[in-house]
Design a protein around this nucleic acid. Structure first.
Length: 278
DNA sequence: GTCCAGGCCCTCA
DNA sequence: TGAGGGCATGGA
């Protein structure tokens, strides 16, 4: 029903699976080797790897090519973004903080993850650390997702639908702590249509952020993560404890946001990756 | 034991 | 509008 499994190959530039995997935007990628991952997203799955530095290979059902191409942002305006970033890096010089971040994270990309999965993932992320976020989401998918075996024998769990997460009592044992009530509340709102995800996805950045921030458990930072990683708003600039430290330390006179108008979220991602790698 | 993690909510001034 | 405490949990 999903068609035959095929391996698609796409030519890529400024694209590195390992860097993306270590950038804290997706929590369910499973490492299989260098530049090689099993990747579930929503109810889908692929194996992605890089046979050459400028080639991305994706093994999935043949009618999912469009989904995964979009997921990896392959149709986005990265040539334009990187041209701007590189221009500023030359102007600033190699010792400038942003120049070093861009050089270190030169294969970074912002994924287009399913909106609902992103909403839950980043609600869990608040005041939490990445290993625990991953563990909670894995446990949640095992308990409430559907186990799928692909025609090639790969097994994965789908991301749970909203109507399976509406009872906070069911969520115990997932390591969610106080966040369980936030999750079940949001799941109830989505499942009953009070919070229509599709409508949210169609809104512009400002309006969508206002709606998201009205959800208990979603503040400025989590809203920006959802907008950036799950709703395609590359202008979103999430400020967490890591980014806060960099802004205070390196940009006490203000961050030059206007340079990166429309794709500041990508620059934020370069900083996050670079800072954590140091 | 204390501190921290891709923060948010509530209270109080 | 902003500062400060509380919040579940587990690893360092």
């Amino acid at each position: 029903m999903n068609g035959k499994t095929t391996t698609f190959e796409w030519r890529v530039d400024h694209f590195d699976l390992d860097q993306i995997a270590e950038s804290g935007q997706a929590f369910r990628w499973e490492w299989r080797g260098p530049e090689n991952y099993a990747i579930p997203a929503g109810d889908r799955f692929c194996v992605a790897y890089m046979p050459e530095p400028d080639k991305l290979a994706v093994r999935c059902p043949e009618n999912w090519a469009t989904f995964w191409r979009y997921y990896f942002g392959l149709g986005d305006a990265y040539p334009e973004y990187w041209a701007a970033i590189d221009t500023w890096a030359r102007r600033d010089g190699p010792a400038a903080y942003l120049s070093k971040a861009a050089a270190t994270a030169s294969g970074m990309a912002i994924l287009h993850q399913p909106a609902w999965e992103t909403m839950v993932s980043f609600m869990i992320s608040q005041n939490n650390n990445i290993p625990r976020i991953k563990a909670s989401l894995a446990a949640m998918c095992r308990r409430f997702g559907k186990q799928i075996t692909t025609p090639t024998g790969e097994q994965y769990y789908t991301f749970p639908l909203a109507d399976t997460l509406t009872d906070a009592a069911d969520l115990s044992g997932l390591g969610l702590g106080y966040r369980d009530k936030y999750i079940s509340g949001m799941a109830h709102a989505v499942a009953t249509g009070i919070l229509p995800v599709r409508t949210l996805e169609a809104m512009d950045y400002t309006r969508a952020k206002a709606v998201l921030k009205a959800v208990p458990g979603i503040g400025e930072k989590v809203a920006n993560c959802i907008l950036l990683y799950g709703m395609g708003h590359l202008e979103a600039f999430p400020v967490d404890t890591w980014i806060r430290r960099v802004l205070d330390r390196e940009f006490s006179d203000g961050f030059p946001m206007e340079r990166y108008s429309g794709f500041a979220g990508l620059v934020q991602q370069l900083i996050f990756y670079y800072e954590r790698r140091k």
